[in-house]
Nucleic acid binder design. Structure first.
Lengths: 154, 154
DNA sequence: ATTTGTGCAAATCGTTTGCATCTGA
DNA sequence: TCAGATGCAAACGATTTGCACAAAT
């Protein structure tokens, strides 16, 4: 389903990007890059991207997916999204940004950049500079939860 | 080093707190509560608290530390701080507040509530309510990092 | 030909769980 | 007494690592 020898324009572009950042444009890196950057913003977990890649007929191992995700992150092509201590998500959006997160369902929703604005921000601690600002708005279903009557403790 | 039978005023207070929230004031819960709440605000990881407890001569297992941390969190005595996907931190400060986080050193610093103000916030997705808002300002040392000269990738 | 990347499986890390034993009210 | 807690060790899921093999320049 995929022509292994010929690179289309998109691949050429990606290949150049990778080279420019010191990453050899290997088959799997190109394929993953294509999945990641080919269709607008996305957040993916390693396992997820791994499945996608395999379904797309790309021969790649989970370890390589992890490696690649981290290399891309180091190269500034991805950023890591931390919403819970379970697993890591990687976001094709690199700047500061925001998310809704429902821990009961695990879903992460993007919040458009301009939907949050700060009226006041602290200066970084002495000797530090701000790298980026993450905002996670934790939400839950608006339903039951009448009131927990003390004594709940599993 | 610790009198097992007599409870000082602090312990009585903590014991009452726990009871009021449906948690039996057991030896280890009291000891952990004392470590957690005895000296102002703190963020601790489970492993950390575990070590502290043992050094304080408290006989407690790591599993119980985890249990207790979660029970306290459920009871509203602690809040979980998510800054990285590695491990969980628990914060004795329960109200809304924010954090600086330096991933290179692992340090977490509190940001007072009033140091951040929002000029605009999004409405929660339909059917959801906002549980709480987490803000993590990621920082790093303001020094070296002159510019990564391409080609770094190890 | 060299150097760098990849795949696999085993190893690690933080955290959770199952179950027998103990403890507090 | 007896429900609820605890300790231990095994189980777990996500991620990392070591090393032989393969691919890119």
């Amino acid at each position: 389903m995929v022509d292994e020898t010929h690179r289309d324009e998109e691949e050429e572009h990606l290949a150049r990007q990778l080279k420019a950042r010191g990453l050899r444009p290997t088959r799997q890196r190109l394929a993953l890059a294509k999945l990641l950057f080919g269709r607008g913003h996305r957040h993916v977990a390693a396992e997820e991207l791994y499945q996608e890649a395999r379904q797309a007929g790309v021969s790649v191992s989970l370890a390589t997916v992890y490696n690649t995700l981290h290399q891309f992150t180091r190269a500034g092509l991805l950023s890591e999204v931390v919403v819970g201590s379970g697993q890591s998500y990687f976001d094709t959006h690199v700047g500061s940004h925001w998310h809704f997160f429902d821990k009961t369902t695990g879903e992460i929703l993007d919040i458009p950049e301009d939907a949050i604005a700060f009226a006041r921000l602290p200066a970084p601690p002495p000797g530090k500079v701000i790298d980026r600002i993450d905002v996670v708005i934790r939400v839950r279903r608006a339903e039951p939860v009448p009131e927990q009557p003390l004594g709940r403790e599993d």
